[in-house]
Design a protein around this nucleic acid. Structure first.
Lengths: 183, 183, 183, 183
DNA sequence: GATGAATGAGGATTCATTCAT
DNA sequence: AATGAATGAATCCTCATTCAT
């Protein structure tokens, strides 16, 4: 996918069309304009990915287990579809984009899933009650995102999925030495 | 700053010049080309910001205190210079940018500072020894970044700096309920 | 043709396009860039003109007759296509042109034809054997060129072709008074 | 001189100024505008060179001797001042130049000198009477010009002046084999 | 539906020229 | 007289979009 390599705005309709194996004009039979390609791409991908996420979370028991599955699946999917990962990383950090609504929606869906998990964790006593929820969800999303971002910038060589467990561990236990404090 | 509002590549030289109160051609007396504006901007800002960061870390005692100061300062500076924040967020998540070297350098400097802090924390017993260091540093950077990113997408209304302490708390203690484990 | 009137480098793409009855962008469907217009023009013309020259020379008997035909045809063609004549005159006397290879090739082809003729003339005894060949061919090309150049600078009013025979006469007999020598 | 290397129109005022060791603005104290540099250059050079030519012709006896001296001096001067040669070659073959009047004047002066010589030659019986004068003078100028042009395109390596005598020989005797005709 | 040639607005960059110092 | 920073008109080229076939 061209706009994974050079960014969506640096890609031309000609490149996109050639890659799709159609003529330039044909693009306009399916997309209103160039921006609409991005919008539809995100709309389609969002649905696809979030269905997976929801399903993954639903099949797990316990908040921590749900969180583990979510993060694993997240890393897994982005590893599987590196192009989507690149486009997602690039576009979620711009503003005044035409795909802004789609991106906000995706972010929101993700944050909602995390919120639900944390709230469940608080309810069943596996997570701290004194958490600043709106911060926690971003803290988790941010850490996962940056893990993906770094994987991308490194060229996507190593196994991204293997980062899931250590990452969850940091979410759950933090980096402080609890043994010291609790001794 | 125009390219904070519409992204650097969506801004025109005319807009940038008008905003700077000079003629289009004048831009080229100070910058080799359009890309060079971004490069010089990051080079200049990086030096300025990292001097502050280093200083902030140096004046604190103890790893946790250092980390607090760093994160506070980070949020503080990005809150103070919102335009820089926007541009930084946008450009650090693109690839094949001309400012790539500057951005990699900035990232690396940041990660190095965090590494040093964590290593010190491990040495003085305030941080866990069983940490995956290269993951931890990105986990911290990612969480801070996403906090800033969200603040930006919300329009920069609330006080970003106030996020520092709860964020550090999450880094240190995690979200797991240690009381349960330790009871 | 605009660049006949003002020189190729003084013409703008807009002018060239307007004259061709197409939009500016259309030019770039057929030419790589502005320079390529000149290159293609020469490549095309060179082939066309030199095919004529070769043919003209082939159909004549005897070196002197061949030379006459060549010069006649040369003047004839440049008279017929005055724009080409202007561009040719202008560009063959510049250096570091992008069309340089085409121009060198055209010059070389011309000089080669003349060389062959002169060598044949020497073989059949109609031309002097003590000739400095590489000078002779330039001497002929130069004289024809300047004849064309002057015709152009005079506005192309008079009949250029009528210069052919007197010019050949000068090539063959020179301006010296042989009768005096031979008396 | 910069505009010998890249042509006058491809040279910038900055380059010309730097080479002259003055600031850009200073150029405008001495020249009305960029074109005026070319105009003044030709005006100055023309006077200088033609004074030499006239002198050279005056000091010789006999038309053929005068012609020899003129051609020698011409080649000599252009060899000595290669930059002038390049600029002269380039600009005399363009039209709608601002230096056009200067160039026409230079051409005319040259052709006038040649005319005078030929007329004298006809009067004293060393040159043919049946010459088409306006053609002869261009034939001579063209041949000399092309000799210079070729020397320039070859990089100006060999001794240009040594071409003078063989060239004159061609002017005088032509390339035809008179012995054959006169036997 | 599909094509791809043609369009022309838009944008980066250059550079002759000016003018305050 | 000399400077050189600033100007902005001018120009090449790109590319999203259209539309006749």
């Amino acid at each position: 996918m061209v706009f994974a390599e050079q960014g969506f705005y640096q890609s031309t309709i000609s490149q996109i069309a050639r890659e799709a194996g159609v003529a330039d004009g044909t693009i306009y039979l399916y997309f209103k304009n160039k921006d609409d390609i991005l919008v539809q791409f995100f709309t389609y991908k969002a649905k696809q990915v979030f269905d997976l996420f929801r399903e993954e979370v639903a099949t797990a028991d316990g908040a921590i287990e749900k969180l583990k599955n979510l993060v694993r699946r997240h890393l897994d999917e982005f590893q599987r579809d590196k192009n989507m990962a690149i486009v997602y990383q690039a576009e979620t950090h711009q503003n005044s984009r035409s795909a802004e609504p789609q991106i906000r929606e995706m972010s929101k869906m993700y944050l909602d899933i995390v919120s639900e998990i944390v709230e469940q964790g608080q309810a069943d006593g596996t997570m701290r009650k004194d958490l600043y929820l709106s911060l926690v969800k971003r803290f988790i999303l941010g850490a996962v995102d940056e893990t993906i971002n770094n994987w991308l910038h490194s060229g996507g060589k190593y196994d991204l999925r293997s980062m899931a467990d250590p990452l969850i561990d940091l979410f759950i236990r933090g980096i402080g030495n609890n043994n010291v404090n609790n001794s």
